[in-house]
Amino acid sequence: MRMEQTGKVKKDFIVCKDVMEEFPKADEGMFRVAENLNFTVKENEFLVLFGPGQCGKTSILNMIAGFDLPTSGSITVDGQEVKGPGAERGMVFQTTCLFPWLTVMGNVEYGPKVRGVGKKERRKKAQHYIDLVGLQGFENHFPVKISGGMKQRVGIARAYCNEPVVMLMDEPFGHLDAQTRYLMQEDLMKIWEREKRTVIFVTNNIEEALYLADRILVLTNCPTKVKAEYKIDLPRPRDYTDPDFLKLRKEISEVVDHTL
């Protein structure tokens, strides 16, 4: 159960301990995606995993989601070891992964529906989240008819509507144009401040990381591990041109590994 926020020290909500993950390579031998991976996430913290492209950020998210299990080490969420996908963890995918045969409403209410929530209650809840992401009026549209930014809003509403304790976001704005991306970041912050969740957000965009994060973990190239950690105390909403913002931007950019 979620803790009261007032007066208590926030506990470690997600714990990744000595995580190592290997895949068999196509030819022979093993490909090591992650090793010595240790980090924790506090309840209601907005954690950003930042690292170069293909560094294994998504692999980490997939392990927390339960799609893949670590080769060794352990991942616990709220004290429970992750053994597979589960509704208490919500995921927002880079490619949106909306169900094309369902309307916006159908997508958002899917989680509660398969978990057996009654129609009236789940409709009400879905409507709340559709309104929250600013899609009122589009309830009966099919995904094929709405823009990329709107699709991702549906993805966020769908994950939120299932009331997960953790939100996993895998470069959700990676496919959007720059202008839409700024707008989505702003709106995501507003949503998160209204409805706090523990968030792990993966990105390879330093500005995005700095705009959103309570804390940034800089990851190394494969096999990935935590290279540096930054607590971001800048007041919200943040300003991309604020001198402190730019200073951090420069500092973190110099730390991160570069790949071609």
């Binding site: 989601a65 597979g84 996908p85 589960g86 919500g90 995921m91 992964c97 398969v114 769908r158």
Partner: peptide
């Protein structure tokens, strides 16, 4: 699409 299966599992589908 296997990603849609993932998405559904993540949302709690059996």
């Amino acid at each position: 699409d296997p990603m849609l299966i993932r998405a559904a599992r993540m949302l709690g589908a059996k």
